[in-house]
Computed example of a mutant assay.
Amino acid sequence: MTPSLPLLAVAALVTGLLGAPGREVSPVGDVVEHVAGHASGTYWTPQRMARAVPIGLLGGLQKITTAGPGAPSVLPSVARAALPPAAEAVLAPAQAARRSTATTGTTRTTGATRTRQAAAMPPATTSGTRWGAGGSVTRTTGRVFLTLNGVDFSCSASAVHGANRDLVVTAGHCVKDGAGDWAENWTFVPGYDEGRQPYGAFPARRMFVAGPWSRSGNDDYDVGMVAVDDRDGRHLTDLVGGQPIAFDPPRSRRTYGFGFPADPPYDGERLLYCAGVPHGDPQGQTRDQGLRCNLTAGASGGPWLSGFDPVSGRGTLTSVSSFKYSNDHRTMYGPYFGSAVRDLYRTAERA
């Protein structure tokens, strides 16, 4: 397995064909599938969720490595030291509005109104801000809880549109430990917010990764897709909606990356985001794109949305949070959604 953090672009939308009822799904391309074992309905208690370890940040030679089987449970302080560049970055928009109004004054009504309106819009460039603008992204993004080698972990993920209406996209390392084990007790909690689970929890029924990830942990393919159980007969995207997904997208388009970082200074309880224009991998080791982003472990698998509308909270899924280099803690990398990810999607959405 490549020593990576599994931590933690628009093309035509792809819609696959729904398989006939009861028919086994035939993988499209190089896709590896796993039938998930169901977690006990009482496994993920609030206490167990609170104790789950965020996947990532262990020191590696060139990249920050994942906390996989056999890895020490203590995370290095150097990885935790990456803080937002300014205190304003961790404020919710409403808090930012209050601060802005207080510092600029309200002597002139029109000036104060403009200040409040400007502050209410979430920043279009940020490396770590709490998302407080609402919209679809607050429902479709959620936390993932899983067990690997007997250790409970947390990641992030997104509900996406698919033929089965039950599809979740996350990082490959949040589904399978590269060439190692598949995750157990895998559960998606959309709309998670400070312990609240407004739509309930959705356990995995079938899990999918690309062949190169399953065989060698190749970072270019660090994408996992999971078909989840319905809830009382209602499908996931019928309840929370889903973001569209695209493949072979143009590079260097403004992107918003969301997730639930759980390593300090964050605690995994709130949805945060980064936004900016991604760039290529300067190390030349992957085809991934890098986004300036201070989110920490636990943000793994969170959605990267291009063409994002902050008002509606909708965009197009074009990557997920994957890893950081150990010599650059302020840049998050995400895999490019090319033909291999398209094949992965076409298989998973019919499961």
Rank of each mutant, 00 (worst) to 15 (best):
R206V: 13
D229Q: 13
V168M: 08
R292G: 05
G217A: 07
P198A: 08
Y256P: 09
G242L: 02
D288S: 14
S214W: 01
T255Q: 15
V168G: 05
G180F: 12
P265A: 06
H279T: 12
D166C: 15
F188R: 03
T255D: 15
D181L: 06
V169M: 12
D193C: 11
D193Y: 08
D222I: 09
D281F: 06
P250A: 14
G257E: 12
P264M: 04
F202M: 07
N185T: 02
G268D: 10
P282L: 03
G257A: 06
V160K: 00
I245G: 10
Q243L: 00
V228R: 00
H161G: 15
G180K: 13
G233Q: 01
L272S: 10
V277S: 07
D166A: 15
R205W: 08
W186D: 02
D267Q: 09
H161F: 11
D219P: 14
F260K: 00
M225T: 00
P190D: 00
D219W: 10
W182S: 01
Y256A: 00
L271S: 09
Q243E: 15
F188Q: 03
P244F: 03
W213D: 08
A201V: 09
G241R: 12
R215F: 04
Q283K: 15
G257N: 10
G178H: 11
D281T: 01
Y266V: 01
Y221L: 10
D263Q: 11
G200K: 00
Y273R: 05
R231M: 10
Y256L: 00
Y256R: 11
A227P: 08
A171I: 09
V160N: 08
Q285R: 14
R231C: 02
N185L: 13
L239M: 03
V223A: 07
P198V: 00
Y221F: 12
A227H: 12
A179T: 15
L167G: 02
G259A: 06
L271W: 05
E184S: 08
V175F: 01
R251V: 09
A275K: 05
C274D: 05
P203C: 09
Y256I: 08
D181G: 06
